[in-house]
Design a protein around this nucleic acid. Structure first.
Lengths: 213, 213, 213, 213
DNA sequence: ACAGGCGGGACAGCCCGTTATT
DNA sequence: AATAACGGGCTGTCCCGCCTGT
């Protein structure tokens, strides 16, 4: 919500203090979860003093985590929004590329940076209302993007929703396993079966439409 | 180390202090993860004093978590080991029942008790060697049980391993989403697609065997 | 780091929180040594909360001890620096007064407050790098002050250094014995022999200078 | 007091559990002081279970420390008792050898094992009655041995007592400085001046006796 | 908007000593 | 007569949030 703050007219590529905080929190959530990091450490990493956090985020640590979640989900969903723009077999291929990208990112970080949503999701309790709300929204956003792409392939709304939910399931579950295994095999397996499932399901629907008998 | 102290023929102290500690840790891992737990709270729940923890688990919190992981994975894998005992279509049906059971348990806890493996997996870092090792073993155990069942249906070792990995992926990913969503829909979707996948894959192989020509 | 905050011209908070902590630690080191002190007790004495300690001394207990050592050595060395300001026989007399002063202080505290350097020196191990470094510096500071005074009396650098080292030895050893004995006799004995030694050594050199033939 | 327990009739050079405990405590006192070691660590080093300590030493940690002090002082004083057995100049030479021996021991341990008496002396408070008593006795024992040797050289009782006290002072003070410095120089300096003092004092008295005029 | 001292509660770990079992 | 388990108090450390002064 706090706008671009100092729009930095021309030069000054340096990110704002607020952005650095959000970025640091997002990174920490990926690596160790919300309870695994201390604010002091986080502030040191962002090179920001104590006071500035409570200036930008009166809600404290939780509010910063919510901001980080919101920022991260956009980054994840971007390649998904592009999924449905093309037709036919292409969707499955793009899904494969999406998962391969996730595998590449995880591998590049030494299998340390997983999905920040998943970590917070498992740490949070009923009491963390804001967090839960932000997470529910985030996952819904992911499912919606996938569902829209699938609907454009001809699937019914309920069918697309169900498959979209399962693709998100595969994404999160495979990232989790890959992290522990220390290799990308779980992601490769997941990609293989998910792609087959998507291809097969969309083809069935396409056939049903073209051969109504 | 604690010998068969619970042999206690008739009336006994129910569970040993050690077991109560492991159980409390397992429960806490499901709800909030390793970093979200205070030992004091945990000890209070297990009705055990501070000193006894470091007697049974000189490695401290981490060692207790490892014990909890090992205990839990056995509980999860038990219904899986029974999966392959029967033939034909039954495997898919039993898989469905397994996931339905997970859904029931999650729902019964008010969507608070997820999979303890997943939470620790996402919180742990490269530095937590013992934890990572225990987790890797635990997931391998899950995959092995599923893989064995699939191989008994005629799948090749590599095919069975790949599908087993994906089933674990679906289990973990769906539990995670269901927890955030506060309903069992993600688990139902996952069950639907996974069961279809297993049925179809095993049937294909069965056909290939019966129609070799 | 804490600036000249105690400039406070007229009425002020007497001493800064930081200074109170250092003072409390110095006192505790004299009485019971580093390991015999609880931070809680120390903080209560300094009327400071827990968190403020790690703000001023991120290195924790050890860093506070180092600060206390540095502050104390200055207090000890001050009367020594004045030793060499006068000539002739006076040095030995001033040395006597220095040791008498130490005896008076020890006695006034009921033979509880010895030399903080000595206690930490004996408790510290190879691993306590910062402590050892601070102690080495502190003792070197003591020896340097004494050595300078002796050199001004005509002793060669090596002769002065050797005698200075022995005077420090006598100071620490006598304080230690007096503490256990519960009386100042060891200090009196030490003063007697040390003074004789210094007087005799400086006189020899003076004679050598005046009767070169 | 508990006698040699298992007298181990012929062979079995293995020390008794009690002796191993005392030895471990003495070693620990030299290195880190009474508060610097934990009983668990100490018991592990002595390969003894918890209960055996309170069997042999109902007084617990303190009682064990007292036993260690008593055992150690005998070891220190042994070469001193032999000091006075010879006449003339030899006493000073033997004193020199005693201090050189201390330097060798300290150096051999990497400047970690100092005098256990000194460390406990500085850690103890008024409240530690048993410890203080044992220490006072130990230091008195040291002074007595030295004083006896000096008296045999012709010094009066008070003169011998004063010089003996100062020799102990030099011994303790120099060990302390050498430990911090990480070299034996303080001990060498102390030996030099102490030997000169002893030689000169005994010679004076010898002259006084032979030239009564 | 920044800076940093303050506040005190909670954390994991370890302490020393005792009590039941073999 | 040895040992494992118990017991809970206390340690040093670090936590997150606040609240003054620039």
């Amino acid at each position: 919500m706090p706008p671009s703050s100092r729009a930095a007219p021309v030069a000054a590529p340096a990110t704002s203090t607020r952005d650095r905080l959000v970025e640091a929190m997002a990174d920490a959530l990926q690596r160790r979860g919300l309870h695994g990091i201390g604010l002091n450490e986080l502030l040191a990493q962002a090179q920001a003093p104590k006071g500035v956090l409570y200036h930008h985020f009166p809600g404290g640590k939780t509010a910063l985590a919510v901001a980080a979640i919101e920022a991260t989900v956009e980054r994840i969903v971007r390649p998904l929004d592009a999924l449905g723009r093309v037709g036919g077999d292409e969707l499955a291929a793009r899904l494969q590329r999406w998962l391969a990208g996730a595998a590449r990112e995880l591998s590049a970080s030494g299998f340390e940076r997983g999905c920040p949503l998943a970590t917070v999701a498992l740490e949070s309790t009923e009491a963390d209302t804001e967090l839960r709300a932000a997470l529910a929204l985030a996952f819904a956003r992911l499912r919606a993007a996938l569902s829209a792409a699938l609907e454009r392939q001809g699937l019914s709304q309920s069918e697309a929703g169900s498959l979209a939910s399962f693709v998100v399931t595969g994404y999160e579950g495979a990232l989790l396993q890959a992290r522990v295994a220390g290799n990308t095999e779980p992601l490769q397996h997941a990609a293989r079966w998910l792609v087959a499932l998507v291809r097969q399901t969309t083809e069935t629907h396409a056939r049903q439409r073209s051969e109504p008998t």
